[in-house]
Amino acid sequence: MNAPNRLWRIASRPVDAVSRQNFLWVEEPMPQPGAGELLVRVIYLSIDPVQRYWLSPDATFGPPADAGMPMPGRIWGVVEQSASPAFPPGTLVAGPGIWAQWCTLPVAAAEPVPDWPGIPLLAHTSLFCMQALTAYFGLLEIAALRKTDTVVVSAAAGAVGSLVVQMARINGCARLVAIAGSEDKCRWLHEQLGADVAINYRTSDIGQALDAACPDGIDVYYDNVGGDILDAVLARINAHARIACGGFISHYDDGGQPRGIHNFQMLALKQARAEGFSCFEYVPRAGEAFAAIRRWHEQGRISYRAHLLKGLEQAPEALAGIFAGRNTGKTVIEVSPPPPEKAS
């Protein structure tokens, strides 16, 4: 196979907002799989907020991301070359890849994509992915959702938040409040995903909006953003509230100067709990989450929306777009044509 491989390498670490200038578009020879590796043609590339964090000098988890290296990212693709009987050519796989048209994937890291009727490959990028683990275990285990809870979800129209909103409605809660950054997103969250109230933080005083939406206080907060919204929620938590700290997107572009939290004392005053976690801890239990999500999908109780962009060349702008609020749902790059959908 003599076709060239196009990919993005890291040119520099962003000081504040990530941009195309932090990446280098290159054309290189086709990678050759070594012993224990697969050659994969990338079909879908996941673009996630955590990739911005990987570019930070203080990143403490995830793949290495130094200048000159290919930009890492989770991929779904088709095996083109393989010496492994477990992954013959033509097998659909997922795993830790790079921003490239083709990449090598260690057999030990490759995950076969289940051939589930009625669930196209694109659905796997949004429903059966790391963000789904973050949503499922963050809400049901870290936050320990109860049917009597008033639940608030930030970044609720994103890849994680939109699943959290639906999972809270499926599993039951007393009141569900979603926070997002546009009227269109708020309308989607309220009318289609089941939020009782959707708050546009760009046009609302967040404290006043939370007072109106949560007159009895807040029992569960699923935090994807940190910053001022976390502070406003802390001021309104009930006794024994649970905060699942799944992300801090408001800090990724702060130039290494994060704002302090003013209402941290409320955790002690309300005997509340805030707990950070990572989806990587729950990978061994992925089957548990995915079985539940598949069941809900088959029942028509959970859906997904992909912010789909075609062409690998769009990857840097797609990552920057997450922080500008240009996506609704999961941001995915279509790198090459997907397989035909099978009838359900």
Rank of each mutant, 00 (worst) to 15 (best):
W99I: 10
P120N: 09
P72D: 09
E111P: 04
H124P: 04
P70M: 02
A110W: 00
P112M: 01
G68P: 09
F128T: 07
V79H: 07
A94Q: 13
W116Q: 14
E80P: 03
G77K: 02
T104G: 11
A86Y: 06
A100N: 05
M69Y: 05
A108F: 11
P88S: 04
L127F: 06
E111Q: 13
D66H: 13
W102Q: 11
A100R: 04
P120G: 08
P106Y: 09
L105Q: 02
P70S: 09
E111N: 10
V78E: 12
L92W: 01
D66S: 15
T125Y: 09
P96F: 12
Q101P: 12
I75C: 07
L92Q: 05
P72G: 10
P106C: 10
V79C: 02
T125Q: 07
G118L: 08
G77D: 03
F128P: 04
G73T: 03
T104E: 10
F87A: 04
S82D: 11
M71F: 03
C129Q: 05
C129A: 11
L127Y: 03
G73R: 02
A123G: 06
L122R: 05
A123K: 00
L122W: 08
G77L: 04
S84T: 14
M69Q: 15
P112V: 01
A110V: 01
Q81H: 13
A67T: 13
V93S: 00
M71Q: 09
A100S: 11
L127P: 03
G95Q: 08
V79N: 05
W116D: 15
D115I: 14
I98N: 08
A83K: 15
A67G: 14
R74G: 15
P117F: 07
D115T: 14
T91K: 08
P117N: 09
V93E: 00
W102K: 05
W116L: 15
L105M: 11
I119R: 03
A65N: 03
G90F: 06
L92K: 04
P70Y: 02
S84M: 13
P96D: 15
M69A: 15
A100V: 01
G90P: 11
G90H: 14
V107H: 02
D115E: 15
I98Y: 05
Q101Y: 11
A108R: 13
V107M: 05
L127A: 08
C129T: 02
T91Q: 01
G77R: 05
A109F: 06
A94S: 14
P96C: 09
A123F: 01
